[in-house]
């Protein structure tokens, strides 16, 4: 079974649907209603065409069960030019994530900004000079 087929099969099982999308429009995300969540980085996929961060959300106070979120973001080239490195966010890092949520309600979204416990903000822009 090819890697693509494995990925598609797993994604269908988990309800993400569709196909591995390569490089794509971000219309699946609700850019008009950004939200924030707090969590811990589990995995960094610093890859083209898009980077993804897997985040574990565990809120003891609310009593909600732990959940796994996927945040997609632009490409390594764009983030590098915006001052990030592939080590800017590492597994185990705790942070606040601002994101445009997936319209279908899945736990994930398009990452817009990260605020680290130190107060440092990680942002990015496609067009330099606007960051």
């Amino acid at each position: 079974m090819s890697p693509k087929i494995v990925v598609v099969a797993v994604s269908l099982v988990l309800g993400f649907g569709g196909i591995a999308a390569a490089h794509h429009s971000n219309a699946a995300y609700d850019l008009d209603h950004p939200q924030t969540m707090e969590g811990t980085v589990k995995t960094v996929n610093w890859t083209n065409p898009h980077i993804t961060f897997v985040i574990e959300k565990k809120d003891v106070k609310s009593g909600e069960p732990p959940s796994t979120w996927v945040f997609e973001v632009s490409s390594p080239g764009v983030l590098t030019r915006s001052g990030w490195t592939k080590r800017s966010l590492q597994p185990g890092d705790h942070a606040v994530f601002r994101y445009a949520p997936l319209r279908d309600g899945s736990p994930g979204g398009f990452l817009q900004k990260v605020t680290l416990p130190s107060g440092q903000e990680l942002t990015y822009t496609l067009m330099p000079g606007e960051q």
Partner: peptide
């Protein structure tokens, strides 16, 4: 699986 790649509903 789905966490390592990008999935949108077509």
């Amino acid at each position: 699986g789905p966490h390592g790649t990008v999935h949108t509903v077509k």
